[in-house]
Simulated scan of single mutants.
Amino acid sequence: MTTWFPVAVTLLVAGLIVGVMCTINMMIGPTRPSEIKSEAFECGNPPSGSAWGRFSVRFYLTAILFLLFDVEVIFLYPWAVELRYLGMFGFVEALIFIAILAVGLLYAWQRGALDWD
C-alpha cells in the first residue's frame, strides 16, 4: 500500500487542480453565446460546402507515411545516446536500420505515394 500512496496523492492533486481551474473558468469566464460563435471554425473563412467532404486517399497515405518515418526516426535516439557503449556493432545496426528506411522511402517514392497529381 505504501508504494501506491505517492501515485494516489499525485492523482488527487491533479484532479483537484483540474476541478479548481474548471470552477474558476465557469465563475469568471465570459459567456455570451451567439450564432456566429456556434458555427464551425474554418481558418477564419466563412464555411463553404458540406462538412462531410471527402479527402483524397493520397492525403491519408502521405499522413501514414509521415507518421511511419517519423516514429521510426525516434528509434535512432536511443542508439545515439548509447552509441559509445554499443561500439561498432551499434553503429552498423543503426546503418542497417537507416538503409531499410531508405529502401522503404525509395519504394514509396517510385510507386508515386508522394505525388499529389
Rank of each mutant, 00 (worst) to 15 (best):
Met1Gly: 12
Trp4Ile: 10
Phe5Val: 14
Pro6Ile: 04
Val7Asn: 01
Val7Gly: 00
Ala8Leu: 15
Val9Lys: 10
Val9Ser: 01
Leu12His: 00
Leu12Met: 13
Leu12Ser: 13
Val13Ile: 15
Leu16Gly: 14
Gly19Trp: 00
Gly19Phe: 02
Met21Ile: 10
Thr23Met: 09
Ile24Leu: 14
Asn25Cys: 08
Met27Asp: 04
Met27Lys: 15
Ile28Gln: 09
Pro30Ala: 13
Ser34Asn: 14
Glu35Ile: 08
Ile36Ala: 12
Ser38Leu: 06
Ala40Asp: 06
Ala40Trp: 07
Phe41Leu: 07
Cys43Pro: 02
Pro46Met: 12
Pro47His: 10
Gly49Glu: 05
Ala51Gln: 08
Phe59Gln: 03
Tyr60Gln: 03
Thr62Cys: 09
Thr62Lys: 14
Phe66Asn: 09
Phe66Ala: 08
Phe66Trp: 08
Leu67Ile: 07
Leu68Gly: 01
Val71His: 05
Val73Met: 10
Tyr77Asn: 02
Ala80Trp: 07
Ala80Tyr: 07
Ala80His: 12
Val81Thr: 08
Leu86His: 06
Gly87Ile: 09
Gly90Glu: 10
Phe91Asp: 03
Ile98Asp: 01
Ala99Val: 06
Leu101Gly: 07
Ala102Asn: 00
Val103Phe: 13
Val103Ser: 04
Val103Met: 10
Leu106Glu: 04
Leu106Thr: 05
Tyr107Ser: 06
Ala108Glu: 03
Arg111Lys: 14
Arg111Ile: 04
Gly112Pro: 09
Leu114His: 05
Trp116Val: 15
Trp116Leu: 15
Trp116Cys: 03
Trp116Met: 15
